[in-house]
Design a protein around this nucleic acid. Structure first.
Lengths: 198, 198, 198, 198
DNA sequence: CTCTAATCGAGACGGTACGTCGCGTCTTACG
DNA sequence: CGTAAGACGCGACGTACCGTCTCGATTAGAG
């Protein structure tokens, strides 16, 4: 349950009981995400694991997905803030390595979110958030629609991270950062030349 | 229902009624996939749309997912056969263009599969199949784990195609092929140089 | 469960499974009515006793009360047909005795319905049905509103029967018939003279 | 809310706040009883109508029924004291008329109690109290079990009053008293002759 | 007139039954 | 006598209300 530790009391309702219930629920979700796919979890199961009443779940979240969102969306926003800047940054490798380092530090959390069956939902939330970010700074590529750049860069990065996290720590953050840079970042920020045409 | 036309009688049981039922079910699924996400469909709904009895569904498929598989897996295998070769092909642009052309010709089918809510399942099936393909031919990159190459190449390609199919035909197959080539294929087959170090 | 025996297959749906389920439910209700008040029964409890699934209950009855109605309303109509005629019959004692005899023969059923906690509902259903019966035949009493005559005659009779059935068989049908006749029937059919004023 | 007026401060705790809360609750119950059946009321609804907090209800009454009891049981005892004596009184008509007059004077209260959905509970409470009254004075009828006499006399009277109160004041207390006398009282106190034999 | 303790409102909580829905199985009745 | 229709057992859903509980914030009424 180390993953849940970082979730305690980020901020929330004033009533201490509500805080306790919410933390119990988010913690239970993260625990269960490491055991089975998100869509095989039932609200009853999550409530039971959290030690809260079944109806209490609905006093905090309208659906299972809302709970997942609550757990994930801040993390996603946080990670996105680390992901996109690399596109505008001349020294992208440093940013990329910082991104991978951050994920490695919260390996349990991100493994649960990206490989635990909630992957599809988390991925969509990622792209949804990424699409809403301002992207004026990035220079328009004539050959690459801006929206596609965002979708592809985000999705590809997530895929790469998910693959990494499913690999039992065989690769260091630096290695992954290098791959990420070469495989995804570089093509996106490269100039107008067509590298494949050579 | 044009998408379903290509699905008629690919091969199947001898009994004409079974053939009719299967086609009715696959057709109904494709119709419904254009209306709502896959996971919001019910077997009752599919049966009703197909004009068959509810229990009849189970005589042909054990689950909803099996029906989706029946609809999609051959298409996936077919498309995969067009996707992976580009990695080994020195003239990758031609292969890529052929791939995009093929998808464009079956736009309705692929739009339903990749953007209709079944996307997650189809995507996973894609990668699952891709992973099982022999990959001896591809030269090992020192910086790129082979498995990651497959996962990333497949996933990225699907994402790109999905994005394209959700764009109301604003881009031609050639344009997409160019992007695909530059964004995904080229980085995968490029040499040992470190592009980020520049 | 002798009470339920008389309920088997009175008439019903053609499907044998439906017949079986309905009989299981009616039987279970009658069993449970002898154990605790109707309003303390839950549908889950009735279903469990019947050996049917919980949802199956709702495939047959919309509410607990509907099941009670199905069990009771025919019996009520039947008994009503024996109750009201005594009012128009010159030889009322014979009719009354027949009524009491009939109730005695189905003692378990009527004890459950009239003393088992469902009493209130059954009573209201009784009066509701009685009110809808034609009453042209009965001669209007100048001192007694017709509607009141029906309500009072029905309610009083039910009360008397309920009291009897709660008495551990200490009284014979004939004794009850005599009391019923003297206490309720006679005052209702007596002439214009005021018997208490003498 | 005229009905509730008579309920104010009958006696109770010293603290003015408690008195206010109790009266708010009893008043709210009586209001709501005129709108819907007792068993369809929720404690939350009663509390809200009373303008008190939800938990405050439980500080005064353990259950909904207890509140109803608090509202009704004294009234019942009072009315019973007027009902039973008529049986022992040679001049029963006077007593009966007094009874009906009293009910007419508190029409709103009794209409709510006897016709408002709480009828079943109030009725049972009535009979319960009646059964516990001493009945040595009444001469035993050879043909009529004493307990039945009480149950029947009480129940019948309540039924008659309930019917009256549901009739939009079409009958005067005197008319009802006459009917009550003739229909219920007279048969109970009549001699040994068999009135049906005529 | 103050102080203190009872009472208040508000509402979250663990429970439990509700009635609905979809699943996948299995039986029925019909063609 | 095989197949389409659909009833069944199961179990999760989301809602509603129960009765308990913990909070401050009034607010009597005793000193």
């Amino acid at each position: 349950m180390e993953a849940a530790v970082s979730r305690i009391s980020r901020e929330g309702p004033s009533d201490a009981r509500q805080v306790r219930s919410r933390n119990a629920l988010t913690g239970a979700l993260l625990e269960l995400l490491e055991e089975k796919p998100f869509d095989q979890l039932t609200i009853r199961e999550i409530s039971a694991r959290a030690g809260t009443g079944y109806a209490t779940f609905f006093r905090h979240y309208p659906t299972k997905e809302a709970l997942l969102s609550d757990v994930a969306s801040e993390e996603i926003a946080d990670l996105l803030a680390r992901t996109l800047p690399v596109l505008y940054d001349s020294n992208s490798f440093e940013s990329t390595r910082a991104l991978c380092g951050h994920v490695a530090e919260h390996r349990n959390l991100w493994a649960a979110l990206l490989t635990g069956g909630a992957a599809g939902i988390v991925r969509e939330e990622f792209i949804r958030q990424a699409r809403q970010l301002p992207r004026d700074m990035v220079e328009r590529k004539s050959w690459l629609p801006a929206d596609l750049g965002v979708v592809y860069g985000t999705g590809g990065t997530i895929d790469l991270l998910a693959w990494w996290l499913s690999q039992d720590e065989a690769y260091s953050p630096e290695e992954i950062a290098a791959i990420l840079n070469r495989l995804i970042i570089a093509p996106l920020i490269s100039g107008e030349r067509s590298p494949a045409s050579a």
